[in-house]
Computed example of a mutant assay.
Amino acid sequence: MKKNKEIQNIEEDILDPADIIVTLDLDDNVSVDCEIYTIFEVQDQNYIALVPLQENGERNDEGDVYLYRYFEDENGTPSLENIESDDEFEIVSDRFDELLDEEDFETL
């Protein structure tokens, strides 16, 4: 998983979280536009799953998913934080996989 430094830009003109574009500044000085896949809770902490967009702006369903801790301040301004612990990342990844499995089951 690549790490971000900050949320560079959020375009929030539509209420559906999947329509919000988040621009991540990654460690290697590359910016990546992502779509919010979901925000979910694990052990009283919110996490966000972001899916990188292709150059044409379409979601890359075959690509990576970025997982971060997700916070909002008292004004509702969102921020992300890297998941530093391997144990925490494993727990969050497992929960995200469970959410994907639940979604697949519901579409059957």
Rank of each mutant, 00 (worst) to 15 (best):
I48Q: 01
I48S: 04
I48R: 03
D19R: 03
P78H: 02
Y68W: 00
I14C: 13
Q43R: 13
Y70W: 02
Q45L: 10
V30H: 12
S31K: 15
D44Y: 08
D87K: 15
E55G: 07
D86P: 12
G63S: 14
G63Q: 11
A49P: 11
A49K: 05
G57H: 09
Y47H: 11
E62Q: 15
I48G: 01
V51Y: 09
D28C: 06
L80P: 01
D19Y: 07
Q43F: 06
D16S: 13
N60I: 06
S79E: 13
T23G: 00
E41C: 12
E62T: 12
N75I: 03
I36C: 03
N82L: 02
E88Q: 09
V65M: 02
D33K: 04
E84F: 09
V22R: 06
D61N: 15
D73V: 01
G57Q: 07
N60R: 08
F71Y: 13
I14M: 14
E58T: 08
V30P: 04
E81C: 11
F71T: 06
I36V: 05
Y37L: 07
T38R: 08
Y37I: 09
V32Y: 05
D73N: 06
N46H: 10
S31P: 03
A18Q: 12
I83C: 04
L53W: 13
N46W: 08
L80G: 01
L50N: 05
D19I: 03
Y66L: 07
N29S: 04
D44K: 13
S31I: 11
I39F: 07
N75P: 01
L50K: 07
E41D: 14
L80S: 00
T23Y: 04
A18E: 11
D19T: 02
L80K: 00
I39T: 09
D86K: 15
D44M: 10
E74A: 09
C34Q: 00
E55W: 05
E84G: 04
D86E: 14
G57M: 07
N82R: 03
I14F: 15
D13W: 14
E88R: 10
Q54N: 14
I21G: 05
D44C: 10
V22P: 02
Q43I: 13
G76K: 02
T23N: 05
E72T: 04
V51N: 15
N46P: 02
E88W: 07
V42F: 02
E58D: 13
